[in-house]
Design a protein around this nucleic acid. Structure first.
Lengths: 181, 181
DNA sequence: ACACTAATATGATGGCGATCATATTTGAGC
DNA sequence: GCTCAAATATGATCGCCATCATATTAGTGT
């Protein structure tokens, strides 16, 4: 049945939002188009009225997740405390799209990689802006290394099946960045 | 046809080695059991004589990759130079199993996570051993943060579709760890 | 050498999932 | 209000793949 143009835009937003969450939570391949549509309260057939393919959806979902996360924390220690927390580790679906999908994106077509690249760039710049003043070149280096350490720590903390080790990875990486920056 | 027990062990090793490479290269889901067997020079049917399931294979393949990588470089700068190099970034199939599979392992059953956890532990200890002398507690912190930064940098460098940015992520993270350690 | 069984090969099976075709409903523009 | 096309729903299709069943071959222990 046909719906309002407004409704249709709302549907598209809903699909994107659910896809963004599901992809982060379960990985790209493990989520079916039908599952996304069901989560959005629709049936699978209408999907191709909104997106060209599942991979097209991924690219938009990544962009969505990145845009949604662009409200930065002011200071680096505050950001770090949130980012490298048990809460963030355990809430993958609503968490950092890079930690959840950057490894996966290597295997995906250009559009998805491009969206991810934009997110990584933005993240580096955001961290650089939050760093205490110093030489521009050093700020960028610190921002890059901090971003890498944060993403890496979250990925490792999520991979590990041992809770104390997982906590330790988060805590020690956090202290290390705090100390170095 | 039946083969020598020796042959059979060789087949198993071959399957593991090809699986280890293929999983790193293309991801767990994108590799089929038949593909692994073909790469090992066998047909798909015999697979279940060697492993209980595809996921069982993954667990053993991770353990394999980790064992194969356990010949450490002596010094941290030397290890870093290899690890955060364009060559390593571009040779995923023979590269670090954590950078290739840690993010994926979060979605896999216990055995795979357990093998990965052992690898992460070993890597942390190896880095700690390679660090210049200092207080034990600080060494461990530096080792954990360095491991996280290295894995994160490699993942980000591989995700990005822009060569200069990718190179920059590797180079700056490397300098940052070198400097801090 | 023989019998037995282990290793592999060949050939199903069953399910899932991306995508497409067609039907249905109902906004939108006149 | 009427017409037409646009969203969505329903229902294929087609291919892939993990796993299993059965056949074939030939080591292994005697």
């Amino acid at each position: 049945m046909r719906v309002t143009q407004e409704q249709m835009r709302a549907h598209r937003r809903r699909i994107l939002s659910e896809a963004s969450r599901l992809f982060r939570e379960k990985g790209f391949e493990a989520v079916s188009v039908a599952e996304v549509m069901k989560a959005a309260g629709l049936t699978h057939g209408g999907f191709y009225g909104h997106f060209a393919s599942k991979e097209d959806l991924l690219a938009h979902a990544i962009a969505e997740a990145i845009a949604e996360k662009s409200d930065a924390e002011a200071t680096l220690p505050a950001f770090l405390a949130t980012y490298l927390s048990a809460g963030h580790r355990d809430a993958v679906g609503g968490g950092c799209p890079m930690a959840a999908l950057a490894a996966d994106v290597r295997l995906r077509p250009a559009a998805a990689r491009s969206a991810m690249t934009a997110g990584i760039r933005a993240q580096i710049e955001r961290i650089a802006a939050a760093l205490p003043d110093s030489v521009t070149e050093d700020r960028r280096r610190e921002a890059i290394a901090s971003a890498a350490a944060m993403v890496g720590a979250l990925i490792l903390a999520r991979a590990v099946d041992d809770a104390p080790l997982s906590d330790e990875i988060l805590a020690e990486t956090r202290r290390w960045i705090d100390h170095g920056a």
